[in-house]
């Protein structure tokens, strides 16, 4: 290795080194800060948390009670991510014709001109090597396991106020149950839970009810996101259970939908390929 090459190698990693040193120098005092952890919020929750929210699981009490507004924002992020991801992937059909040809690395064709439809790229998309995605083992195991996972997901969701778990955690388990069912499902299976349309409707309705639950506080409680169930005389934990169920269904349907969309993308790619043959 000549000195010049060493120098150019050093030169090329210089920006990386500079940014690492800068970031490291700023973050090390934060990572190593050793002030005693503040306990005011913890003490308050330990003493009053159950009385104020009705949930013994204090984490649930915080994220569905005290800070439910944050959770609403988080749900929205999930909703937008699901809808955006599915949109971006779904629109990928024929994206090759709009963009650059993967084979033709030498002369990239301007995308705008192609998108405007002035030229048409006649080169066929490269063949994706088709791996065998399903085996009997996978189908049998996931098909049998799916319902069990679904039941467990509902348990985690419904008991979120008492035990570790809650809407998000339960929802994710439900979503994996849905994906299992979809993986193991054969033609003409008796469940409609793996249909994209059903999941999209479930998700939209759950989001609507979540917004509605926040709104009802305005009329039945004493403001947005107040516990309107307590306002009509039900036990106050009901609010957290209700939110857990809504969020669980929403997360389950949303992430399940995303999983289904990615699975059917695999199918779509096959279909595309067949068309081009």
């Amino acid at each position: 290795m000549t000195p010049r090459r060493v120098f150019s190698a050093l030169w090329s990693i210089l920006p990386l080194v500079i940014s690492l040193v800068a970031v490291g120098a700023i973050l090390i005092p934060i990572f190593l800060e050793s002030t005693p952890w503040p306990v005011e919020a913890r003490n308050h929750l330990e003493d009053q948390g159950v009385a104020e929210s009705g949930a013994q699981n204090l984490v649930s009490a915080v994220y569905l009670g005290y800070r439910a507004f944050d959770t609403l924002g988080e749900t929205i992020v999930l909703l937008v991510a699901v809808s955006g991801t599915i949109g971006i992937i779904a629109r990928a059909k024929g994206a090759l014709a709009k963009g650059f040809d993967r084979e033709d690395k030498g002369s990239p064709v301007p995308a705008v001109a192609l998108a405007a439809g002035t030229t048409s790229l006649s080169a066929p998309p490269p063949r994706l090597r088709r791996a065998k995605t399903r085996t009997d083992l996978l189908e049998v195991v996931t098909g049998k396991l799916g319902p069990v996972v679904l039941v467990f997901g509902f348990y985690v969701m419904l008991y979120g106020h008492l035990s570790p778990g809650g809407g998000f955690q339960g929802g994710v388990v439900i979503a994996s149950g849905i994906v299992f069912l979809a993986l193991g499902g054969k033609e003409g299976a008796s469940t409609r839970l793996t249909e994209a349309g059903v999941l999209a409707r479930l998700e939209a309705m759950a989001f609507f009810f979540l917004v509605l639950a926040a709104f009802l506080g305005m009329f039945m409680g004493s403001g947005f996101f107040t516990n309107f169930l307590a306002g009509v005389g039900l036990p106050s934990v009901g609010f957290i259970i209700l939110l857990n169920i809504i969020i669980g269904l929403k997360v389950g349907a949303g992430i399940g939908f995303m999983g289904i969309a990615m699975l059917s993308r695999v199918e779509g790619a096959k279909g595309e390929e067949v068309n081009h043959d």
Partner: peptide, 24 residues
């Protein structure tokens, strides 16, 4: 102070309605 969160929640309600329109 009861309805002030309308500026946040009304667009969300609108978004929920639009999502329902898309799904159904």
């Amino acid at each position: 102070d009861r309805f002030i969160f309308g500026v946040v929640m009304l667009p969300l309600l609108g978004a929920a309605i639009a999502f329902i329109a898309k799904a159904f």
